[in-house]
């Protein structure tokens, strides 16, 4: 008879609770830093994709295709282990000297991967804005970039906020892959507790609940934002 002895006390106290909390902290840090970076990168790619210059547009298309059609895990391995031969020796030395290369490589992979999805979100936001606005901008003498910067993007980004929140949740979930290169985020810590204590059920339940609470809190805030801030304004207009 395999009698699995559940031991919640072990996970919820002392050292192992500390591991879980530090894992959560790193998950949030990874997701937040990558979110900010991939927002700006996504913005640039989206603008490039809508540019009048054929080569700029083609460049953006290639970027989007390549990034969206390769697994995130492979991209993480590529940046962590594969970038070494492609970078100058001095860069490698500098990166290793930071002592944070695991975090940097994971952030880079997550940023690049997410930027492709954010670029698409922003583009659909832009599409929702009437064409006349662009034309009006051009006829009043603004350049393409000025029209984007001052007229189109501010509106598009506001419309993109719900999908962006969604991307943040995806990032929090996707950051679990960083465990494969030794970033001690939440899933890594759960696994670590499992291998130290052989108490897999408890460790993974704790981590799963943390992920669920995280998504509950964020979507909850989003709902409150939608109902309390967006809707009343919409009703007035």
């Amino acid at each position: 008879m395999l009698n699995y002895q559940f031991d919640w006390h072990l996970i919820l106290n002392g050292e192992y609770r500390q591991w879980l909390l530090s894992g959560l902290w790193l998950t949030l840090k990874l997701a937040t830093v990558s979110m900010i970076l991939s927002f700006f990168l996504g913005l640039i790619i989206a603008v490039m994709k809508m540019s009048g210059q054929r080569f700029v547009r083609a460049g953006a298309s290639v970027y989007l295709e390549v990034v969206r059609n390769t697994p995130l895990l492979v991209q993480i391995f590529f940046w962590y282990f594969g970038s070494f031969k492609l970078l100058p020796a001095a860069w490698n030395e500098w990166l290793n000297a930071t002592n944070e290369f695991e975090f940097i490589a994971a952030t880079m992979a997550l940023t690049i991967y997410t930027s492709a999805f954010i670029a698409e979100d922003i583009r659909s936001g832009v599409r929702a804005i009437p064409k006349e606005q662009t034309e009006a901008g051009f006829s009043s003498g603004l350049s393409f970039l000025q029209v984007m910067r001052w007229i189109i993007l501010p509106q598009a980004v506001r419309m993109t906020i719900p999908p962006l929140v969604n991307q943040f949740l995806n990032l929090a979930k996707n950051s679990s892959l960083a465990m494969t290169i030794g970033v001690a985020e939440l899933t890594y810590q759960a696994r670590q507790i499992e291998s130290h204590t052989l108490k897999g059920f408890e460790a993974f339940t704790a981590a799963t609940l943390i992920y669920l609470i995280l998504s509950l809190v964020i979507t909850g805030l989003m709902e409150i934002y939608n109902e309390k801030i967006l809707k009343p304004r919409g009703a007035q207009a």
């Binding site: 609940l209 669920l212 609470i213 998504s215 509950l216 979507t219 909850g220 709902e223 409150i224 939608n226 109902e227």
Partner: peptide
């Protein structure tokens, strides 16, 4: 709480 939040809290309880 908006209804979606409520349902999420409920599913957490069930879990």
């Amino acid at each position: 709480f908006p209804s979606k939040v409520q349902s999420k809290i409920q599913f957490l309880v069930v879990f």
